[in-house]
Design a protein around this nucleic acid. Structure first.
Lengths: 202, 202
DNA sequence: GTTTTATCTGAACAAACGTTCAGATAGCTT
DNA sequence: AAGCTATCTGAACGTTTGTTCAGATAAAAC
């Protein structure tokens, strides 16, 4: 046997990436074999190498694609003049985007150590670019006095870590709607970085 | 050759666990071989099986030990009457404990998917027990009006996610002391869950 | 209808995997 | 000094790994 009926590059290619993304997220990069991916796609392992030079490139491509899409979508948003509005928009966008692509988010955080040093540096650079969009909001707000953060870099990482936490517990059939979740988190983020005057503090 | 000079169970055993912990944290459970662990310890791979039935048990033992120590240390703390004091104590304890054992923390979060279902259930149970200590603080504070959280469960996970984020960027030779870091995070945690009255809000 | 090209198979490769075990010996016990 | 036992070696096992490639064929081009 050889080329199978209905075989097409523009069908098999995406299916390989979808399958790899799902399997990597579920079992981890190192625990998933090329034969396993090929099996779920419906081809032999050798066929995968028409679409990638090696397994490492497959992982890197998935992570790079995800980070670039994140940056693109993030940059495409209109920037409000109001700092608080910008922060709220970032918060809601981050939660929504990350909940839409849990697998890609998962591997982009968990499989960093399986990248070659060169690939790792590229992905880290993309991540830092994204973090910078939040950090510049916090820095601008801090400078104008609208926000009150002790250390903008730490606050940036703290807020992102908190928001990323949603992915660990969110379920589609949960008791809260996406909008309710966004609002709860936005409430906490806002309070954490806005200058406040605690009620009942002595 | 056979038994080597100075070979002892109470030396080799801990060294195997230390080495495995470090390698699992650095490269991932699936990517680390028994021969690799044995090589760094200075024995042959077969010798490892005097200390564990299989590789899975090694991973589970490390995670279980870590979680039990976390729970033990957490439970050993004196419980203040004041809710705010309890929350501050939890925050500072969590950061300090987790920064002291970055490798154990790392694998306890990252390698959950490499546990058998039975082992996974046990570790998840331990984690939930720990989360409950924070949730009960937030619930008590919410009931008495000292705290203001929309959803105690979400707030619990959000705070823990935020605090865990420290481990991703902390370096021993960083520009901030441990106490300064604790204070910055405690400031954000407190503001996020305390009822407040924003300054300059219209 | 023929030729060309893109796509896949199926077998093969050396290397690495977790695990087992008979045999050897260092160190403790007596 | 002799015997015992805990500890380790070194080889072996059957699988599985990522990757390569000659050969086969469906689909596209002409």
């Amino acid at each position: 046997m050889a080329r199978t009926t209905g075989s097409h590059s523009d069908i098999t290619g995406p299916r390989i990436r979808e399958t790899a993304l799902r399997l990597f997220a579920r079992h981890g990069f190192a625990a998933v074999s090329m034969r396993q991916i090929a099996g779920e796609v419906g081809v032999q392992a050798g066929a995968l190498y028409n679409y990638m030079p090696d397994k490492q490139s497959l992982l890197f491509g998935l992570m790079q694609g995800h980070m670039q899409e994140l940056l693109y979508e993030s940059a495409a948003r209109t920037i409000a003049a109001d700092i608080i509005a910008r922060l709220e928009d970032f918060t809601r966008f981050h939660i929504r985007f990350h909940l839409e692509k849990p697998d890609a988010v998962f591997i982009s955080y968990m499989e960093l150590r399986n990248l070659t040093p060169e690939n790792f540096a590229i992905i880290e650079g993309l991540r830092r670019s994204y973090e910078d969009t939040l950090e510049s909001i916090l820095r601008d707000g801090s400078a104008s006095g609208v926000l009150d953060v002790t250390d903008t870099k730490i606050a940036t990482l703290a807020v992102i870590a908190m928001l990323n936490g949603v992915n660990t517990w969110y379920r589609d059939d949960g008791r809260l709607t996406l909008d309710e979740i966004e609002t709860i988190y936005w409430d906490m983020v806002r309070k954490a970085v806005v200058p406040n005057q605690p009620i009942g503090s002595d």
